[in-house]
Design a protein around this nucleic acid. Structure first.
Length: 137
DNA sequence: GCCAACGTTGGC
DNA sequence: GCCAACGTTGGC
C-alpha cells in the first residue's frame, strides 16, 4: 500500500464536503496537471492519503482512502485527464499545519514542503508515520 | 489581493 | 528544440 496527499481549497471542496459524501466518496476531478495525474494513475484501491486544506488552514485535516483507480475525469471531454475516487476515512486528532511540516527536520523532503504547487503528491511511509505522530494518531 | 514559482503553449 | 509569454496555484 502506498501513501498520498490530496490538496483542496476548503472553500471549493473541503474535508466536510468529502465526509458528507459518505462511503461512496467522490471523484477527485479537475486535476489538470500531468504530475498530479500521473500520481493518480499509480494509485491502487485501498491506498491511503492525507487531505490537506490549501489557502485556508494550510493543514492536514483528515485521512482518505482510494476507492476507485484512475478513470476518465467526468468534468472534461479531454481524454488526457483522469482521476480516482476517494472517501473520507477519519479526521485527524490534531491537524498538522504546513508550518509544522516545514519545521520538522524529518519532513524537509516532503513534497508538501518542497513542491507547494503540486496538488496530488506521493508521501513516503516514513513521512506518513511522522505526520501521523504529529497528528496524534 | 499580490506575487513568486512553476507548468504549458506557441512562435520561431 | 528553445524560450518568451501566458495562465494557474497557493503561500503570504
Amino acid at each position: 500500500m502506498r501513501y498520498w496527499l490530496f490538496k483542496s481549497e476548503p472553500d471549493v471542496f473541503g474535508w466536510d464536503d468529502l465526509v458528507a459524501k459518505g462511503k461512496s466518496g467522490e471523484e477527485w476531478d479537475g486535476v489538470r496537471n500531468y504530475q498530479a495525474r500521473n500520481n493518480m494513475r499509480e494509485m491502487k484501491k485501498g491506498d491511503r492519503g492525507f487531505f490537506y486544506h490549501s489557502n485556508k488552514g494550510k493543514e492536514i485535516v483528515g485521512i482518505v482512502e482510494v476507492i476507485a483507480e484512475a478513470h476518465p475525469d467526468s468534468t472534461t471531454d479531454d481524454a488526457r485527464w483522469e482521476c480516482v475516487d476517494v472517501r473520507a476515512v477519519k479526521p485527524v486528532k490534531t491537524p498538522v499545519s504546513l508550518d509544522q511540516a516545514k519545521e520538522d527536520e524529518r519532513l524537509k523532503d516532503m513534497a508538501l514542503v518542497t513542491n507547494t504547487r503540486l496538488s496530488v503528491q506521493p508521501v513516503s511511509e516514513a513521512e506518513w508515520n511522522v505526520v501521523m505522530e504529529l497528528a496524534g494518531m
